[in-house]
């Protein structure tokens, strides 16, 4: 899974701290390393704005993985067969794992797990808006794998070369697992498309509802992405939102054809001159509306997440209490 939030500030209107114009030796060394396509590691000096941008991006990415467990998790108990259930459990567990890799990467920048969770639970931190839409039928699970994870892969592969070492290493791990997610989804849809008319209609319905949301996952158009240029400069972002979106569309059209579904965009057609597909207008109004918390499931997702965290508090407390008791016992025996 993936966050669209590269360019989405947690607090709207709040600009990144402006970078001081006097260049210190440390800053010059940092810039030189970035220019040489080198990597920055946790103990290295880095500009405060670089650190802040990474904390925001990596934690939003982590939150997306964790919240992303919810729409698919809803279907674990309703999976149509034991095989599909086992696959879905493995996939949802992977998403949890991805969230953990990413939280760890963000922690190397000096934030804490509790701080990040507080940001998510209070609604201050963003996560990918795609998860604020409901999964209404079983085909949604397949479409999430095929399109949502497909879009995620497009975005995450360039992140494997991110200038910040721990983030890039986490992304390499994530990308290795993501391919399974996309293939299992596509294969589940292929099976449904060989089924009854009703099953085929379910697949088309899921594609109709999720297609435009997937295109929006790549974030606002380049002309409207204030943070993108700085992200590119720092080697945090390697390919622009619009370029990634185009790559995704070009890759998906032939897959849709094999599957036998129609992508719900009358303007979608091959442009011989550009050697790319043209496509219609994305509804950015709806996108921002959902980012701001007013999508169909924002409240439910967050409430479910907070409840799960609170319900687990006693487990975390008990584990710590047990550890303390063990330590005290060991100390007493040693004395």
């Amino acid at each position: 899974m993936y966050t669209q939030a590269m360019d989405i500030p947690d607090e709207p209107g709040k600009k990144l701290a402006s970078v001081s114009t006097t260049v210190s030796d440390q800053e010059a060394a940092f810039e030189a390393r970035i220019d040489a396509d080198g990597r920055i590691e946790p103990q290295d000096w880095m500009p405060e704005a670089y650190r802040k941008t990474l904390v925001r991006q990596i934690s939003q990415h982590a939150h997306s993985e964790i919240v992303g467990m919810l729409p698919e998790g809803n279907w674990i108990s309703r999976a149509p067969s034991l095989k599909r259930k086992a696959i879905l459990i493995a996939k949802v567990q992977d998403e949890g794992g991805h969230g953990l890799y990413l939280y760890s990467a963000a922690e190397t920048l000096g934030t804490s797990r509790d701080q990040m969770l507080e940001g998510l639970h209070s609604g201050k931190a963003k996560y990918s808006s795609i998860f604020n839409y409901p999964t209404l039928n079983w085909a949604d699970v397949g479409v999430i794998g095929w399109l949502v994870d497909g879009a995620a892969i497009m975005n995450q592969i360039p992140l494997c070369r991110c200038s910040y070492g721990p983030y890039s290493r986490a992304m390499i791990r994530v990308c290795k697992e993501e391919s399974f997610h996309q293939r299992q989804g596509y294969e589940a849809l292929l099976v449904m498309m060989q089924g009854t008319e009703a099953q085929k209609a379910m697949v088309q319905d899921a594609v109709n509802r999720l297609w435009w949301k997937c295109l929006a996952m790549f974030g606002p158009p380049d002309s409207d992405s204030p943070h993108s240029a700085q992200g590119m400069r720092w080697g945090i972002k390697r390919i622009s939102n619009d370029e990634l979106r185009q790559k995704f569309i070009d890759a998906t059209v032939p897959q849709a054809k094999v599957l036998g579904v129609t992508l719900p965009d009358p303007d979608l057609k091959w442009n011989e001159e550009r050697q790319h597909h043209d496509y219609g207008q994305i509804d950015w109004q709806e996108f921002w509306n959902t980012v701001e918390g007013n999508g169909p499931c924002n409240k439910e997702r967050l409430a479910t997440r907070v409840k799960a965290h609170n319900d687990g508090q006693w487990v975390r407390d008990a584990a710590l209490a047990y550890t303390r008791k063990q330590q005290q016992r060991a100390q007493k025996e040693a004395a």
Partner: peptide, 17 residues
């Protein structure tokens, strides 16, 4: 990588998962 755990035994268990 890294992870959070209350003690070593739990850390091993979680690292496996």
């Amino acid at each position: 990588g890294s992870l959070h755990a209350a003690d070593a035994a739990q850390a091993l268990h979680m690292a496996r998962d």
